[in-house]
Amino acid sequence: MPAIATGANAANRDLIYIGVSGDGDSLSIGLGHLCHAIRRNLRMVYLIENNGVYGLTKGQFSAAADIGSTAKRGEANLLAPIDPIALGLTLGATFLARGFSGDKTQLVPILKAAIAHRGLALVDVISPCVTFNDHEGSTKSYLYTRQHELKATEADFVPLADEITAVIPPTGTTTVTMHSGDTVQFRRVPDGYDPTDRERVVEYLLERQGQGEVVTGLLYVDESVRDMHELNETSKTPLVNLPYEDLCPGSDELAKLLKRFR
């Protein structure tokens, strides 16, 4: 998926790209592609619908399953999980968020901010699979997520146009201005959580996850990094819109060039 999105975006930088994938597709078969899309800071929203299992093929553990989490038939997962947020932090991701499909109030502003982000916005959405992974013993069930969720931030997305009419944010907020001019305001839930301080974020997440907690919110954001097109200095006009006459050097240039091959 991210490879195809990379090509689409390469050709037409004016569109908004939203990719939806599973935890199986993102963290196993497509892990390499996810990593490299992050490294390229491809401007897109990459949404993982994370249920900890391969749902479609009927309940095998995915690489997102926690050690000890049990499958529907009772067997426990023995392998260490791949956490997409932790992964993103080591790969230089510029936007990392975790939401919960059971909490729309938190997720909607995250998605809006993700779309406004200049680069790849990875949103890991804990999405319990009601058929294969919503039982007792699973760490990706509704119940488990509800009981262990820890909101690191609550975010409000304030589009540029609405700025003036927006409600004055409560105290204790951090405001991040997106490249587009829109702003995201974070209410820091745990004291001192700063979604722009990568080292602190890594430390905090490791510590909390060690306690079995599921940290949610817009966890990390950096708007200063250039996206794929900025790095490439691609023309502002999307490549698909360049007229052919702008692209073909023509017969005179060919003749000139071929002198060097004589």
């Binding site: 999105a5 090509g7 390469a10 794929m228 490549l239 692209l247």
Partner: peptide, 22 residues
């Protein structure tokens, strides 16, 4: 400005994916 974009992909699965996307 560049009127082209060349991506050195991570593997051929990705390179053909990029071609298809574009």
């Amino acid at each position: 400005e560049n009127k082209y974009l060349i991506v050195q992909a991570e593997d051929e699965l990705a390179s053909i994916g990029m071609v298809i996307g574009a």
